[in-house]
Amino acid sequence: MGRHVATVDLPGPVLTAAGCAGTGRELAAYGDLSALGGFVTRTITLRPRPGGPLPRVVESPSGLLHAVGLQNPGLDRFLATELPWLVRAGARVVVSIAGETVAEHAELARRVGQSPGVAAVEVDLSEPDPLDWGLVETREPMASGLVATRIVATCRRELPRDVPVLAKVRPDPLRVLDQALALVEAGVDGLVVGHSLPALMPDGRHAGLSGPSLFPVARRCVAEVHAGLPTLPVMGCGGVATADDARAMLAAGAVAVQVGSALLADPTTAHRISAELAAEPAGGDGAADGAGVPA
C-alpha cells in the first residue's frame, strides 16, 4: 500500500534526508535504493559549490553540528551523472534545490522537471544561514507575496503538473502552521518539517544542529501542521533514528519520515526502519498511538 504524498505515491514511508545520503552510490552498498520510499539528494544549486572550511561536522552532546556549505556539483553535472545513476538504481528521486534568486529557482525547477525519473522537487527554504551561502533570504515571516512563497509559486509553475513541489521548512513549532498556510496558498503540494536548527560551532562559526535533540521539536511541528491542515501531506524530518521514532512521527500526522544524521552513524538505518515498519506498522507496543499528540 503506497502512501499519498502530493501527487506521487511513494512505495513506502521512509526516505533519506537531504545532504545525509551522499550521491546514492555509497548507500547502495548497504541496501537497494528502490526499497526506500524515496531518496532525497543533497541540495543542488545552479552552479557548483565547493562547500565551506573544516571542521564541517562536529559532535555535540545532543546531536551533530554541521556547516558543509552546500557542497554540490551544480545542476549540469548533477543532471548528467548523479540523477541518471539514481534513476537506473530504481530510486524514487526527490531533488532538493536552493537558489540565489527567485529566477534561479525557476531555472532549477524547469530543468529538473524536464529530466526523466524525478519523483518530486524539494525546495530548501530553511537553510539555517542562507545569507552565509549566498542564498535567497527566506527567514522572513512567510506570507503570500514574500520571497519564499514566490519561490514555491515559481517552482510550481515551472514544473510539470505530475511532479510535486515539496517545501522544506524550519522546525519552528510556533510559526510552522503560518508558514504552511502561506505555502499552500502559493501552490505547494507537500511539506517537509524540518531542517536543522541554527546553532554555533565550538569555534563560533554558524552551523545547523541536527539529530536526536530535534525529534520532539520536529514531531511537534508535524502535529501543528496536521492539526491546521489535515489533508496536506507532511514529511517529518528531525532525529528519526528508530522504527519507533518513525511510528511516532507518523502517529503525529506525517505521511512519511526522512532520516538524516542517523545515517551517518549507521548507513543501514533507513533500510532497517523501512523493513521494520513494513513488518509491523503499528509497532509491538502500540507506539503509534501517539499519546499526547493533539488532533
Binding site: 545532504g19 545525509c20 545520503a21 551522499g22 550521491t23 552510490r25 555509497e26 548507500l27 543533497r42 565547493p50 562547500g51 573544516l54 571542521p55 564541517r56 561536522v57 562536529v58 559532535e59 551533530l64 554541521h66 558543509v68 557542497q71 545515517l263 551517518l264 552513524a265 548507513p267
Partner: peptide
C-alpha cells in the same frame, strides 16, 4: 581527515585535490 560518517554520505571530510585537468576539487 576528520569526518563523522566515514562512508561518503556527509561530505564532512573534504580534501582539496588537483585533478587530471589541473583543476582543484574538494
Amino acid at each position: 581527515q576528520p569526518g563523522p560518517c566515514l562512508t561518503g554520505l556527509c561530505q564532512g571530510c573534504a580534501v582539496p585535490v588537483l585533478g587530471e585537468d589541473r583543476v582543484v576539487r574538494m
